[in-house]
Amino acid sequence: MSDRLFETLKKWGIKNYKIIDKEAIKEITLGASILATGGGGDPEIGLLWAYKVLDEGKTIVMIDPMDIPDDILVASPATLGAPVVLTEKPPSHEVLSNAISNLERYMKKNLQATIPIECGGVNSTLAYAAAGEFGVPVIDVDGMNRAFPELQMTSWVTFGVNASPTVSCDDRGNVTIIDTKDDNKMAENIARRVAMAYGGISWIATYPMTGKQVKEASILNSQSIAWELGKAVYRARAKHLDPVEEMLKSLKATRNVVGIKAFKGKIIDISREFGGESSKGFSLGKVKMEGLEDYKGRIAEIDFQNEWLILKIDGKTRCLPPDLIAIVDPETGEPIRTDIMKYGYRGTIILIPAHERMRSPKGIELFGPKYFGYKEDYVPVEELNREV
């Protein structure tokens, strides 16, 4: 597999690539989990699979998107469904391999690289593990630079790249091919129903596209952004620095954006529905936090649908989708996910501007506040917090 991988890189004329070892994948996973805005599933699931791939002597290589040929076939291996079910039903690599193999048969072309669908706790790492299994490179991109609950919520769709065909599999050998052409919302609806029929979780190969489309429509170098963010947190732990401040420095260095430390508090109330039929597999609800230290006497409320969506502090809106809300442990920088949070958890809320490719008019239509049922118009997080 490794020989084939390096032969491919040589054929493409790629000399600059990054070998992803255990330390690297651990750092990328942590950074992606922070950017996952409370969602993305249990990062340990994808991380352990990537470790297994490396332990078997397989090689994982990440390459720059601008170096790939225009005519290659790439796709995203991912999981779709209820995060809590994913924790109870972790995958075997055969299931995702089955999805990729069936996508190749349907497309009548071999997969030549993988791309993460999002910066998510599990979905980022799955693309690396699958790349190692199949002997192909993973490309330094994704479709969000965060996590979002629905399949069509990507920069790819805003540029006219479609999720179809999507192949969905379960651990019993069932395979569903979803091809709704350019109706990406329909693809999401069907994929969601299939996941529920499978028992709450499915394993998919989705967003087949060309190398040219990858370059035109992706969040470029998003994996490097996550990697540097993870490195910053591990560096803070090793040197006893403030992990939140190190995160903000990293985001300024890699994206030239100013992240905002908006609140510090503890969870005092949770309203949550775990991924059942009535919620279509989503974890839905609201969390209330009571302020600590400089924020004592203040209240933060956050709605979520798998991921954190909207933040209000003392009743005033401070962040709207697609901008990012992350709650992290103030001592370790570890992200607090919507599926594991508990009463009494303490966290610092960080707000991060969404990537510019997610803030286009089409993006705001597809995954802005109105799509999620909020009556507010989208206002960039920088403006919402300018006078605070």
Rank of each mutant, 00 (worst) to 15 (best):
Y128R: 06
V85N: 06
I270G: 03
K52P: 03
S2T: 14
V287T: 15
A262M: 07
E356P: 09
E293Q: 15
K52M: 08
G347T: 01
I117E: 04
P330I: 02
I225G: 00
P90T: 03
L9M: 11
M186W: 10
A236Y: 02
R4S: 15
I299H: 02
G230T: 08
V244R: 02
I201Q: 06
A24W: 15
S155K: 07
S360C: 01
L292H: 13
V233M: 04
K108F: 09
T79G: 15
W156H: 11
G143I: 10
D182Q: 07
E104D: 11
W12K: 01
A147H: 06
V157K: 13
N98V: 09
L111N: 06
V157T: 10
L229F: 05
Q305P: 08
V53C: 07
V141A: 11
M341E: 10
P69G: 00
K231Y: 01
H93Y: 15
K375L: 07
T210G: 11
N385M: 04
A326V: 10
S101A: 11
I100F: 00
V74P: 12
D339L: 07
G81P: 09
P380D: 04
A191F: 01
E376M: 05
E290P: 06
A24K: 15
V328R: 03
L309T: 06
M341F: 14
H355T: 13
I60N: 05
E382V: 09
S101V: 10
Y51L: 08
A82N: 15
I325G: 02
